[in-house]
Protein backbone atom coordinates (compact mmCIF):
# COMPACT_ATOMS: atom_id res chain seq x y z
CA UNK A 1 0.00 0.00 0.00
CA UNK A 2 1.92 3.03 -1.20
CA UNK A 3 1.75 6.35 0.53
CA UNK A 4 0.34 8.31 -2.33
CA UNK A 5 -2.01 5.57 -3.45
CA UNK A 6 -3.14 4.93 0.13
CA UNK A 7 -6.71 6.01 -0.14
CA UNK A 8 -6.50 8.75 -2.71
CA UNK A 9 -9.18 7.22 -4.92
CA UNK A 10 -8.75 9.85 -7.61
CA UNK A 11 -10.46 8.98 -10.87
CA UNK A 12 -7.69 10.15 -13.17
CA UNK A 13 -5.03 7.61 -12.28
CA UNK A 14 -5.52 3.95 -11.58
CA UNK A 15 -3.60 2.76 -8.56
CA UNK A 16 -2.97 -0.85 -7.64
CA UNK A 17 -1.96 -1.59 -4.09
CA UNK A 18 -0.34 -4.93 -3.33
CA UNK A 19 -1.56 -5.89 0.15
CA UNK A 20 0.91 -8.11 2.03
CA UNK A 21 -0.38 -11.70 2.13
CA UNK A 22 -3.60 -10.50 0.51
CA UNK A 23 -5.26 -9.16 -2.62
CA UNK A 24 -4.51 -6.33 -5.03
CA UNK A 25 -6.61 -3.26 -4.25
CA UNK A 26 -7.54 -1.31 -7.36
CA UNK A 27 -8.72 2.29 -7.25
CA UNK A 28 -9.46 4.81 -9.97
CA UNK A 29 -11.23 4.61 -13.32
CA UNK A 30 -10.80 1.06 -14.58
CA UNK A 31 -12.60 -1.74 -16.37
CA UNK A 32 -12.12 -5.43 -15.71
CA UNK A 33 -12.54 -7.48 -18.87
CA UNK A 34 -13.34 -11.16 -19.29
CA UNK A 35 -11.23 -13.13 -21.82
CA UNK A 36 -13.75 -12.42 -24.61
CA UNK A 37 -13.59 -8.71 -23.88
CA UNK A 38 -16.88 -8.18 -22.07
CA UNK A 39 -16.81 -5.96 -19.01
CA UNK A 40 -17.07 -7.75 -15.66
CA UNK A 41 -19.35 -5.47 -13.68
CA UNK A 42 -18.01 -4.14 -10.39
CA UNK A 43 -20.32 -3.21 -7.55
CA UNK A 44 -17.88 -0.81 -5.89
CA UNK A 45 -15.36 1.93 -6.60
CA UNK A 46 -12.46 0.14 -4.95
CA UNK A 47 -12.11 -3.57 -5.65
CA UNK A 48 -9.85 -6.30 -4.29
CA UNK A 49 -8.53 -8.74 -6.90
CA UNK A 50 -7.66 -12.28 -5.88
CA UNK A 51 -4.01 -13.25 -6.09
CA UNK A 52 -3.99 -16.43 -4.02
CA UNK A 53 -6.07 -18.31 -6.58
CA UNK A 54 -8.54 -19.69 -4.05
CA UNK A 55 -11.31 -17.08 -4.16
CA UNK A 56 -14.77 -18.33 -5.12
CA UNK A 57 -15.57 -14.86 -6.52
CA UNK A 58 -12.66 -14.51 -8.96
CA UNK A 59 -11.47 -12.15 -10.19
CA UNK A 60 -12.49 -10.59 -6.85
CA UNK A 61 -11.09 -11.49 -3.44
CA UNK A 62 -13.36 -13.24 -0.94
CA UNK A 63 -10.93 -13.39 1.98
CA UNK A 64 -10.04 -17.05 1.36
CA UNK A 65 -6.30 -16.28 1.31
CA UNK A 66 -6.45 -16.10 5.10
CA UNK A 67 -7.90 -19.58 5.39
CA UNK A 68 -5.11 -21.13 3.30
CA UNK A 69 -2.22 -19.15 4.78
CA UNK A 70 -1.32 -17.44 1.50
CA UNK A 71 1.88 -15.39 1.76
CA UNK A 72 3.34 -12.83 -0.61
CA UNK A 73 6.49 -12.12 1.35
CA UNK A 74 9.64 -14.20 1.13
CA UNK A 75 9.89 -16.70 3.97
CA UNK A 76 12.21 -15.75 6.82
CA UNK A 77 15.66 -17.35 6.41
CA UNK A 78 14.93 -19.91 9.11
CA UNK A 79 11.48 -20.78 7.75
CA UNK A 80 10.40 -23.65 5.55
CA UNK A 81 10.67 -23.19 1.79
CA UNK A 82 7.51 -21.70 0.34
Amino acid sequence: MTEQAGTSGGDATVSITACPNGPLLVRGRFEILAPAGEVIPSRRKTVALCRCGISTLKPFCDGSHKAVGFTTEPEAPTGQPA
Binding site: M1, T7, R44, T46, A48, L57, D62
Partner: peptide, 21 residues
Protein backbone atom coordinates in the same frame (compact mmCIF):
# COMPACT_ATOMS: atom_id res chain seq x y z
CA UNK B 1 -22.92 -12.30 -0.63
CA UNK B 2 -22.30 -8.56 -0.90
CA UNK B 3 -20.40 -8.61 2.41
CA UNK B 4 -18.10 -11.40 1.24
CA UNK B 5 -16.83 -9.16 -1.53
CA UNK B 6 -17.11 -5.80 0.21
CA UNK B 7 -15.40 -6.80 3.42
CA UNK B 8 -12.50 -8.45 1.58
CA UNK B 9 -11.84 -4.88 0.37
CA UNK B 10 -12.69 -3.17 3.64
CA UNK B 11 -10.51 -5.36 5.82
CA UNK B 12 -7.38 -4.34 3.94
CA UNK B 13 -8.22 -0.65 4.14
CA UNK B 14 -9.31 -0.90 7.78
CA UNK B 15 -6.29 -2.85 8.99
CA UNK B 16 -3.67 -0.88 7.10
CA UNK B 17 -4.84 2.64 6.31
CA UNK B 18 -7.35 3.15 9.12
CA UNK B 19 -5.93 1.31 12.13
CA UNK B 20 -2.29 1.25 11.03
CA UNK B 21 -2.43 4.77 9.59
Amino acid sequence: DEHVEADAVHEQIAARDLAGG
